[in-house]
């Protein structure tokens, strides 16, 4: 049992401490903003309407792209897994490595140059960017399922489809979810960069704050983005813990 106290303690600390810390930081931030006398540029951005609009844009971009990635990458990985070809697996892993080496800002800007600027481009580049890591994680998760467990399920008379749904996917789910969680957190970061190609989001505030030398605007934008990233990671961590099969 002593082996497990470390991760459990860390997990408990994260589950409780994360939302508390984020709340404290946000309350302190807005209390500070409340004491400022805002000039015309600042009051145009530091109001509830503007902040909510940018936050909504940011969340829509993040959540939509992650949902699309899950819908596209997981079935593709299952298909690649069921082909059971070494070549397919090697290609997926090699592509995954190259994808990991590619800078997100390069993908976003290249797509804006060859296609157009705006929200759709940001969405497409996010999906393209997160597709390979999720694909690779799903495939790895499925490959990791113990061959003996799989054979036992087949021996019990399950059809291959039943083995997939009742044995392989549940056992692979922690690895698959970990991949999706990484994709979600990554999307929050890349959605910040989306401001460079006029796709909105909280990155607008960071860039405007920098360009117009308004530290308060920059600070509110940056802290809100960081809070969203931390909270999304926290929520995904909760889901991961709840859905982990009991035997694991």
């Amino acid at each position: 049992m002593t082996v497990h106290t470390g991760p459990q303690r860390t997990r408990l600390l994260r589950h409780v401490a994360t939302p508390l810390a984020v709340t404290v930081v946000l309350v302190a931030l807005f209390a500070w903003v409340g004491t400022l006398r805002l000039d015309s540029i600042e009051s145009r951005t530091l109001n509830a309407g503007y902040l909510l609009d940018r936050t909504r844009e940011h969340l829509v971009l993040t959540v939509t792209s992650s949902a699309l990635v899950a819908l596209l990458a997981i079935p593709t990985a299952i298909a690649a897994y069921r082909v059971r070809s070494r070549v397919v697996k090697a290609v997926v892993i090699a592509l995954g490595n190259i994808g990991q080496a590619t800078p997100a800002v390069g993908v976003v800007i290249l797509l804006a140059i060859v296609w157009r600027t705006g929200f759709t481009t940001a969405l497409v580049s996010l999906v393209a960017y997160c597709f390979l890591p999720v694909l690779r994680n799903t495939l790895t998760g499925l490959e990791q399922v113990d061959a003996a467990t799989r054979e036992a399920a087949l021996g019990m008379g399950m059809t291959p489809r039943q083995v997939l749904w009742r044995v392989e996917l549940p056992l692979a789910s922690p690895v698959i979810l970990a991949g999706l969680r990484t994709a979600l957190v990554f999307s929050v970061g890349v959605a910040t960069i989306a401001t460079f190609i006029n796709a909105g989001g909280l990155g607008d505030m960071i860039i405007n704050g920098l360009k117009l030398q308004r530290f308060s605007v920059l600070l509110v934008g940056a802290v809100l983005v960081a809070a969203i990233a931390v909270l999304i990671d926290w929520a995904a961590g909760l889901v991961e813990d709840w859905t982990r099969p009991r035997g694991l």
Binding site: G189, V225, I232
Partner: peptide, 16 residues
Amino acid sequence: IAITIPSLALLALLSP
């Protein structure tokens, strides 16, 4: 937690 913070946000916060 620190590693989840978007890099553009951190760079912008550091620049002032």
